[in-house]
Amino acid sequence: MNIELKGRKAIVTGSTAGIGRATAEGLARAGASVVINGRRSARVDEAVRQMRQVFPDRDISGIAADLSTAAGAETVFAQAPDADILVNNVGTAHIRAYNGIEDIAKIPDEDWLGLFQLNVMSGVRMARHYLPRMVRKGWGRVVFVSSESAVNIPKEMLDYGMTKTAQLAVSRGLAEAVAGTGVTVNAVLPGPTRSEILGDFMAKQAEANGVTQEEAEQGFLKAMRPTTLIQRFATTDEVANMIVYACSEQASATTGAALRVEGGVVRFVA
């Protein structure tokens, strides 16, 4: 399959590293011009510099903005008022130990609300701006990067799981709203992935326990995700491949979907 996105402009939120960065590179490789986003100017500038070296013939730009706030979203809109492709990737999680309901009871309001603002409202704000413009043009792609935690709620990260489930509701509802317009809206559900947040956490766990990172990851999977079928962490490129496909012309009949790239962790077929 030859995915061709020449002439398309893509915005990928949270794309200085991890799944977002791999997605930005995949879209650029397919010919799209790409806007990189992150909170800190230095990281955005470095990501843009590196991508321009790899893709010298592509239009690569960057916008530093904190998308957990309405002001941050407005910064993006001012610098990139239009887009053909929107990948709502930015997000984070609070990785905690779990020893019972007492740990859940200790999660403060600011953690619940902070994750909701970043993981959910960032995508709501971005879609609210770009979707009407895509509809007017008769073509567009919006992808929400959710998680298998949306349907396989982790008790140790209940606040995170809540936001990922909310993303599925938003993405499906938006797909319904733009039915028949040539615009598609989908969600992608990664599983355990060697991305920046989880990868760094596993590296620290490996160092603390005197084992390799792969051994630490295997321990995590056995304890927390024993149903994995690939029996390893996914790579960011493997997740990005699904996202790039969902952004392509070839995916024109795929909309309102929750596309799983979670290594078979979730034990149901639908």
Rank of each mutant, 00 (worst) to 15 (best):
Q231Y: 12
T163C: 10
R128C: 05
I63M: 13
A80K: 13
I11L: 15
E74F: 03
G31L: 02
I101T: 05
M134H: 07
N99D: 06
A127Y: 07
G264R: 14
T235W: 05
E215M: 10
M134Q: 09
S171Y: 02
Q117P: 08
R128Q: 13
K6V: 08
A270W: 15
F201H: 10
P108L: 08
L5K: 08
A32Y: 05
I95E: 01
V239Q: 05
D159R: 01
P192C: 03
F55A: 03
R260E: 10
R21N: 09
T184M: 01
A22N: 15
D59K: 04
S195W: 01
D84Y: 06
V54L: 13
A177L: 10
R58S: 11
N2M: 15
Q167E: 13
L5C: 04
I153C: 04
Q167F: 06
G123K: 03
L259I: 07
V54T: 15
A175C: 03
A253V: 06
E249S: 05
A166R: 04
V48C: 10
I243Q: 00
I11N: 04
F77G: 08
S33V: 02
I243P: 00
I60N: 00
R40A: 04
G26V: 11
T163L: 01
L115C: 11
L221M: 08
F201Y: 13
G263V: 10
M134T: 03
A93R: 11
A64T: 07
A24W: 00
E262S: 06
G100E: 12
P108Y: 00
A206L: 04
V34N: 00
A42E: 15
G264V: 06
N186K: 00
Q213G: 02
L221S: 11
G264C: 10
S15F: 00
A216K: 08
W139Q: 03
I85E: 04
I153S: 02
A32Q: 02
M162C: 13
E4Q: 14
V244D: 01
A240V: 11
V151G: 02
R49P: 13
A175R: 11
P192T: 11
A169P: 13
R43T: 14
I3A: 01
E102F: 00
G14Y: 11
E238M: 10
F201A: 06
P226E: 13
I63V: 15
N88M: 06
D103E: 09
F220H: 07
T184R: 08
V54R: 15
A42R: 15
N186A: 01
R96Y: 00
P108C: 07
L115D: 09
L67D: 04
S33G: 15
A179N: 09
V211A: 09
G38I: 03
A80C: 14
I104Q: 03
D59I: 01
P154L: 04
R141Y: 09
V76D: 12
L221D: 06
V142N: 05
R260Y: 11
L158D: 05
V244T: 08
V87N: 06
Q167G: 03
